[in-house]
Simulated assay, not measured.
Amino acid sequence: MTNTVGVQVKRLPHGEGLDLPTYATAGAAGMDVLSAEDVSLEPGMRHAVATGLAMAIPAGYEIQVRPRSGLAYKFGVTVPNTPGTIDSDYRGELKILMINHGTEAFAIKRGERVAQLVLGPVTQAAWHEVGELDETDRGAGGFGSTGR
């Protein structure tokens, strides 16, 4: 059973005629979001792809922007700040920061699925400064300390 949370969305003029983000299957965690523009990403190029949407995410939630695995695998096109976070108090246009790690230019067409959006709850931390931390088996072992 899944939870459903309402998210208000405003379609901007350049988003007219495009579908709202949708789940491809009943068990999908992420909603596919579409590009509202045509753009070509040269190898190594980054671009904030317009979606033509703005939204009001409920307090206590965020939307994470994640890459589409097919674009990453087949073309090397991904979201560089994965996952990107859209905060509940942001009201500007949702743009998807994309980068082409491939060897050839990649054309993004208006209406093409460019990323996934995952709505999730947010827990905010309350910091408590202490003089010492409790001991664990791992201790201060960092990168690679637990094996391969």
Rank of each mutant, 00 (worst) to 15 (best):
T2N: 14
N3S: 15
V5P: 07
V7K: 03
V9S: 01
R11W: 11
R11C: 10
R11E: 07
H14D: 04
G15W: 03
G15I: 06
G15N: 05
G17T: 08
L18H: 08
D19T: 06
L20N: 04
G27R: 14
A28Y: 10
A29C: 11
A29H: 06
A29M: 11
G30Q: 11
M31Y: 10
V33A: 01
V33W: 04
S35G: 08
S35I: 02
A36E: 02
E37P: 02
V39M: 09
V39W: 04
S40A: 15
S40V: 15
E42R: 12
E42T: 12
G44Q: 08
R46M: 12
A48Q: 14
A48D: 13
V49S: 08
G52D: 00
P58D: 07
Y61I: 04
E62M: 01
V65Q: 09
R66T: 00
P67E: 04
P67R: 02
S69H: 10
G76Q: 10
V77W: 06
V77F: 05
T82M: 12
G84Q: 08
I86T: 01
I86L: 06
I86E: 03
S88Q: 14
G92K: 00
G92F: 01
K95N: 13
L97H: 06
L97E: 06
M98A: 07
H101S: 14
G102F: 01
G102I: 03
T103M: 14
A107Y: 10
I108D: 00
K109L: 05
E112R: 09
E112G: 07
A115W: 06
L119Y: 01
L119S: 01
L119V: 09
T123E: 15
T123D: 14
A126Q: 15
H128C: 12
H128Q: 15
H128D: 13
E129H: 15
E129F: 14
V130G: 13
E132I: 13
T136D: 09
G139K: 02
G141I: 06
G144I: 09
G144Q: 06
S145F: 06
G147C: 12
G147D: 03
